[in-house]
Measured scan of single mutants.
Amino acid sequence: DETGKFLVLALYDYQEKSPREVTAKKGDILTLLNSTNKDWWKVEVNGRQGFVPAAYVKFL
């Protein structure tokens, strides 16, 4: 159920650099879980949760 969740689009490829991050490919649609940090947003992609740089994604 996606009610109340926001989707964001990956603008660039991002390769995770730590276990707390997730890899995303340009064009991926990610479920935004938390955007309270202006630099790192928590997302879910391909069943995995983790952080990506906020500058790499935008709201749909």
Rank of each mutant, 00 (worst) to 15 (best):
P53M: 06
P19Q: 10
T23P: 03
E21G: 11
Y14S: 02
K38L: 08
N46H: 09
L9C: 13
G47R: 02
Y56L: 15
V45M: 08
F51E: 02
S35T: 12
K5V: 13
V43L: 02
N46E: 08
L33Q: 01
R48D: 03
T31V: 15
R20A: 12
F59V: 14
P19S: 12
A55H: 11
E21W: 08
R48K: 11
G27L: 03
K42Y: 15
K26M: 09
E16N: 05
L32R: 00
Y14L: 03
N34W: 09
T3M: 12
F6A: 12
K58W: 09
T36C: 13
P53Q: 04
L60F: 11
L32I: 09
F59W: 09
G47E: 04
R48Y: 06
A24T: 15
G4T: 12
Q15D: 14
Y12I: 09
V8S: 00
S18I: 04
G4P: 14
E2L: 14
S18R: 08
W40C: 08
Q15Y: 15
G47D: 06
V45I: 15
D13F: 08
E21V: 03
G47K: 04
K17C: 13
F59H: 10
S35M: 14
L32Q: 00
R48F: 05
E2C: 15
P19N: 09
A54N: 03
V22N: 03
Y56I: 15
K58G: 13
I29L: 08
N37R: 08
I29W: 06
W40P: 00
L11E: 02
L32C: 08
G4Q: 13
E44F: 05
G47F: 06
T3A: 12
D28F: 08
S18A: 07
K17Q: 14
V57D: 00
K58C: 15
T23A: 03
D1V: 14
W40N: 00
N46F: 07
N34Q: 09
L32A: 01
L11M: 11
A54K: 06
A54L: 05
D1T: 14
L30D: 00
T3D: 12
R48Q: 08
G47C: 11
N34V: 08
D13Q: 04
L32M: 03
N46T: 03
K17V: 08
E2D: 13
K5Q: 12
P53E: 04
A54F: 04
L30M: 15
Q49R: 11
P19H: 10
N34I: 08
L11Q: 03
Y14V: 03
G47A: 02
K38S: 11
D39R: 12
K5G: 10
G47V: 05
L11G: 02
D39A: 10
P19G: 08
T23K: 02
D28T: 06
K5W: 10
I29S: 02
E21I: 05
